[in-house]
Simulated scan of single mutants.
Amino acid sequence: MTITTLEPGEVFVFGSNAAGAHGGGAARFALDRFGAVWGQGEGLQGRSYAIDTMSGPTVFEEQARRFVAFAADHPELRFLLTEVGCGIAGYRPEQVAPFFTGAGRNVELPASFRRVLARRAPGAEGEVP
């Protein structure tokens, strides 16, 4: 899914860095199109939500979990998650999709993340008990 516009109530979720220097990739797109704030590396800003993917996997996972909780607290919004961490940060979907386990129905995961999570679901083919 390529996100170029947002409908009312939709939020663009992108990967950032701790400094909130939104200079490239989806972060630059969020800055230019969806109200991302230069200098804000995490959280809701305009019609976008930043997750720091550049400060290591522990920080990334913590921020992803905070995002999942934030989305759960805002069922009136629909969050369109890009392949956060899979561009400039250099992660693979297999590494980071599990960070978003438990995301609610108002979080639209990228297809690559959905495939990873479906393979990991209890009862999925190849699942080890």
Rank of each mutant, 00 (worst) to 15 (best):
M1G: 15
I3V: 10
I3F: 01
T4N: 11
E7C: 10
E10A: 02
F12Y: 04
F12L: 00
G15H: 04
N17C: 06
A18C: 08
A19Y: 08
A19M: 09
G20K: 03
H22L: 09
H22E: 07
H22R: 06
G24A: 15
R28L: 13
R28K: 15
F29Y: 13
A30K: 07
L31C: 07
R33E: 13
R33Y: 10
G35C: 04
V37D: 11
Q40V: 13
Q40Y: 08
Q40C: 09
G46D: 00
G46I: 02
S48R: 02
S48Y: 00
A50E: 06
I51N: 00
D52G: 01
T53E: 12
T53S: 14
T53D: 14
T53H: 11
P57N: 11
T58G: 15
T58Q: 15
V59Q: 13
V59T: 13
F60A: 03
F60C: 07
F60W: 04
E62R: 14
E62L: 10
E62K: 12
Q63G: 09
A64L: 02
R66Y: 12
F67K: 08
F67Y: 06
V68Y: 07
A69I: 09
A69M: 12
A69D: 14
F70P: 03
A71P: 03
A71H: 01
A71W: 00
A72F: 08
A72H: 10
D73N: 13
D73Y: 10
P75K: 09
L77K: 11
R78S: 10
L80K: 05
L80N: 06
L80R: 04
I88V: 15
R92P: 11
E94R: 10
Q95K: 10
V96D: 13
A97R: 01
A103R: 02
A103K: 02
G104Y: 03
E108C: 15
L109H: 02
P110G: 07
P110M: 06
A111R: 15
S112L: 11
R114K: 11
R115D: 13
R115G: 11
L117Q: 07
R119A: 15
R119D: 14
R120D: 10
G123T: 06
G123H: 00
G123P: 04
A124Q: 01
V128R: 12
